[in-house]
Design a protein around this nucleic acid. Sequence first.
RNA 1: GCGCCUGUAGCUCAGCGGAUAGAGCAACGGACUUCUAAUCCGUGGGUCGGAGGUUCGAUCCCUCCCAGGCGUGCCA
Length: 568
Amino acid sequence: MQEFKEEIIKALESLVQLGQEEIQQNLSIPPDAGLGDYAFPCFILSKKWKRPPQEISQYLAQEISKKGLGEWIKEVKSAGPYLNFYCNREKLTRETLKEIYEKGKDYGKVKEGGGENVVIDFSAPNIAKPFGIGHLRSTVIGNSLYRLYEALGYNCVGINHLGDWGTQFGKLISAYKRWGDEDSLKEDPIQYLYQLYVSFHQEASGDENLEEEGRHWFKRLEEGEEEAVELWHKFRELSLKEFRRIYRRLDIEFDEEQGESFYNQMLSSTLKRLEEEEIVRKSEGALIVDLEPYGLPPALLRKKDGATLYATRDLCAALYRYEKYKFQKLIYVVGAAQSLHFQQLFKILELMGLPWASRCVHVPFGLIKFKEGKMSTRMGNLIFLEDVIDKAVALARDIIEEKNPDLENKDEVAEMVGIGSVIFGDLSNDRVKDIDFDWDKVLDFSGETSPYIQYAHARICSILRKEGAQASREADLSLLEREEEQRLISLLARFSEHIKRAAETYKPSTLARYLLDLTSDFNYFYHRCPVLTAEEGLKEARLILIDGVRQVLVNGLYLLGIKAPSKM
RNA sequence: GCGCCUGUAGCUCAGCGGAUAGAGCAACGGACUUCUAAUCCGUGGGUCGGAGGUUCGAUCCCUCCCAGGCGUGCCA
């Protein structure tokens, strides 16, 4: 498809006196397949040429036809003000299916990154708190971006910037010292710590002494007092153990698990550097960066009591990461609530004269909302991610039992389907929008869901299984001339365009939508075009076609972090 | 108050400045002795929040207004 596009650009370039970029930008995909594969709207020329666009499009169609069409352009037609280009379908069919077959898992990848580093900061749950549904978004968006940028040829570094430092640990230690016991902790660590945290806040409301005790314990922790550090360390390890179990289920891995606490060692030297460069100044006892000239509120880097803030640690983290990775891009997958924080952070890096400041990008997302009101750890009304996953998997398991009781690896498939559904539910919508959490929606496997895509994939696998080893790669692909077949070819050929777009806009949702389109068009084909009972020749061609669809579905789902069972 | 984000069918949402604004749920009516009915086909459903502006052309860009969310110096 790319070659086709380039040929169009070349053909137009000499005739319309526009740059390649400009032509490319104006090329659009017609609303209806009957109108060709790409269209060039002639309005832009009508002013310059002082002629109606209809006339221009007729003229261009004539001129291009006269000069010869090349190997990709099959036909050029004027349709009102539009100049419609028809692709050589036979060639497109042949080359697309050949490429998918040859590249397999690598089909759709783009050589663009040249092995440069892209660092992605995502997930970042808080230690000693349950992994809530709220953390799902950063986790799955970040993981998908990781895979997308890998597909563009970058070397990705995934960092889980754990929330493992802060006053909350003082509170937790305080609560544990008061009411905690070792046995309950061992039994179900996170649940137990969570309960302690909640009861601390219940007790603390109206008890200033308790708040003070919490702050005091954090101070002892910062000073490295043995008992405090030991407890902190224990809580951290127990939490990590649980997080790792969830990440395993989600099939997500990190290259680094350096949390906020890791940067404690760099705080003072970083602040010193900022003081020397005269970027910070004292204000009301605190150390701030004045960002007023840039229309931003000041950034606080050190409180008047001497303690640092998360902005300070984030600053250290950015410096450390550039030092270590010399990244081409540093992507923060963090909620939209922190947009201002990142604007300030990036501005400070810029003020420090670091040229790579412009390579840092915040990828924000909306929050998950609940009918019952705001979710908060303190109030104890969290929805745990693992509960959501468990329910989705259990439902998948029930449906399998009902529809396909003979399936051999039911639990494994239920896991893939249930978890896929949870991930897809999050990724399929534009990340900037808030999501209303709704159990009914999470537990619905029909329509625009990942089970819909996985089901189509399983059907294809089923057909291919029946044909077995006899499936031949030799077939006359020009027999695939029906609309149902050609629609699929067009979509398959555009796979890598969608990968690029999803990565560049940091929006996995666009790829998710593409997969839904592809699946929908596959079902359209499936219900109208028999494969196994088709006449000889056509059958072979269709087998190759659906094998191509299968491969793209697998590759696409992989980029979203979702697995595709071959039976379900 | 100020800043950022969002507003499209009853509900949840798609819609690279271009041709008649589309899906899914929900409702109703159809298709399983046939390659898996977690599917498919059909029907109804819209002042694209409102008002201006830019443009040959605006759901998309600009301004103002309305509604909701988030943020706004010592949490993260």
